[in-house]
Design a protein around this nucleic acid. Structure first.
Lengths: 114, 114
DNA sequence: TGCTTATTTCGAGAGATGTCGAAATATTGG
DNA sequence: CCAATATTTCGACATCTCTCGAAATAAGCA
């Protein structure tokens, strides 16, 4: 019996990205960044606006950055974080939606898969 | 300018939902269910197809159900789990997208960048 | 009733995550 | 170099999550 799950890089990547979004704090941070738009915010500003500060903020922004949801640029003494969530979040939802009903009895077109 | 951390039920709910998607195993399970379509699958079938079984599968499906991503119905001795992710995942991405740039100035304004 | 199947609950251990404070690093300016 | 600012690294702790196996519950059937 094939116990090997059909784990793919896509799947792992998607899970990591969803996981990055799966924290209320990070959602607050990300939403603050999305609201701020393409100019982004320094960590100080971001902390003031979101209520998440210090090393905790660093931690969360790093997770968001790793997930490809924000971008970080150094500007002098400041780190500017910018949301780039727009496309990625959309792609994320499509990732699931495109799989829809592949194994089900198709309503108008049958799908061959053994 | 509201500096209050915008913690809301929506935000918590969204975080929980994203969090539910933030596991490779659950993504495999959910994708299997999405592929299966509206007929759903018993936990036994779901286990065979996804490779996630036993109490672990129960655990994960419960999390998905709690997040509103799947629905569970009892049918005789079996629990039929059905993906209802379509709308919710879409709403989830829109949740973030609709917040876009609310705090930002118009893009006509220039700024120093790199 | 008692047997079989299907799923859940319970208990436990390993590992990941969230949070904090203090020290460390990097940058700018005098 | 020294001081001030901005962010990160580190260490620690509590809490949550994942996973498993075994016992418990629920439904259908002889």
């Amino acid at each position: 019996m094939d116990m090997t799950p059909p784990l793919s890089t896509d799947l792992l990547e998607a899970a990591q990205r969803f996981s990055a979004l799966g924290s209320e704090q990070r959602l607050v941070v990300l939403r603050t960044l999305v609201r701020a738009g393409q100019d982004g915010l320094s960590l100080g500003e971001l902390g003031d606006r979101s209520g998440v500060t210090g090393s905790t903020l660093t931690h969360h922004t790093q997770i968001l950055a790793q997930a490809g949801l924000v971008e970080q640029t150094k500007r002098g003494r400041s780190i500017i974080t910018t949301a780039i969530a727009y496309d990625n979040v959309k792609a994320l939802s499509e990732f699931l939606l495109t799989e829809c009903c592949a194994d089900a009895v198709a309503p108008s077109k049958d799908h061959d898969h053994g």
